[in-house]
Design a protein around this nucleic acid. Structure first.
Lengths: 156, 156
DNA sequence: TTGCGTGCAAAGGTTTTGCATGGCA
DNA sequence: TGCCATGCAAAACCTTTGCACGCAA
């Protein structure tokens, strides 16, 4: 089931480096491809996609696909965190992902179970909204313009 | 801003009929197309997509795109419910959508705000999991096979 | 009559696949 | 040496777009 260790190829190594460097934000397959090519590595989109798929299977990388018609984005799973056991909050403005690994998860799961008979699966479930930093920027812009908040188009 | 009333065309009418008939589950553009063609209506995929887009803009239909690389699915918004003010729980097995329009929403939003500085946007946020009915089926299958639960591949 | 709605065909863009080659263990 | 990994090109896939025509109001 677990298979053997994946080969330590240049493509995989460099992809991991880029993902490490950007562990705080989500990146697309294209972002990765362009970075590696800029670094002088001859690499194809095919390889990037194939490695990303493997990394997802190995639970080293998370994939987010909920953006409207846009490309999927990826992010390193935090090694120290059990990403399958909490929800993720993704900022629509800057792409930051907040790991909701706090005690409230129990309340949420209990409520869903008892109130709605629903067994939550955290993997793949993403809550969208606006993070604190971006909300502040919005407020400042609002003060300047007095035109109210303008969230990015909803991702549905 | 609001524009004028949309024309009552055969395509739109029939699409609404199909969506009404399936208001408890999500359907794809292809599902709609096939049903209408089976009903003898000459209709193109283009029209289905264009009408779906309009219906979404009019907030008559909700669009879900979070399924892994699969096609988007749509569902009638419940007229009596403010779908923008609560989260949706979607069963990975049967596609049923549960509207989480209960008092717990306030708790969730407060926690996200105060605990994580995160302003939730319900539109586009979907929690995945397994509904009560499907969980029961799983349990029965489990009893028969003693092989444990096998959820559908995660949608990430 | 006006202009929105539709069909057809073709494009669009991301992601996947087949096949031969290259490279890690 | 034995596979896994890679590159290239092409396909696959859902969805969108351009343009001319049709139809609701």
């Amino acid at each position: 089931m677990a298979g053997r260790e994946p080969y330590r190829t240049k493509a995989r190594t460099e992809m991991m480096r880029y993902l490490e460097e950007n562990r705080l934000r989500t990146v697309s397959a294209e972002d990765i491809l362009q970075d590696l090519q800029k670094s002088g590595l001859r690499i194809s989109a095919t390889t990037v996609y194939r490695n990303l798929e493997k990394l997802c299977q190995e639970h080293i990388v998370m994939k987010f696909v909920a953006e409207k018609g846009e490309k999927a984005v990826y992010q390193l799973e935090h090694a120290e965190k059990q990403c399958k056991e909490h929800l993720h909050l993704k900022c629509l403005k800057c792409g930051t992902v907040i790991h909701m690994d706090c005690g409230f998860m129990e309340e949420v799961e209990s409520h869903l179970k008892e109130g709605h008979g629903f067994t939550l699966q955290c993997e793949g479930s993403v809550l969208y909204g606006v993070c604190e930093t971006c909300a502040k920027q919005n407020n400042e812009e609002e003060k300047q313009k007095e035109t109210g908040l303008h969230f990015k188009k909803n991702p549905v």
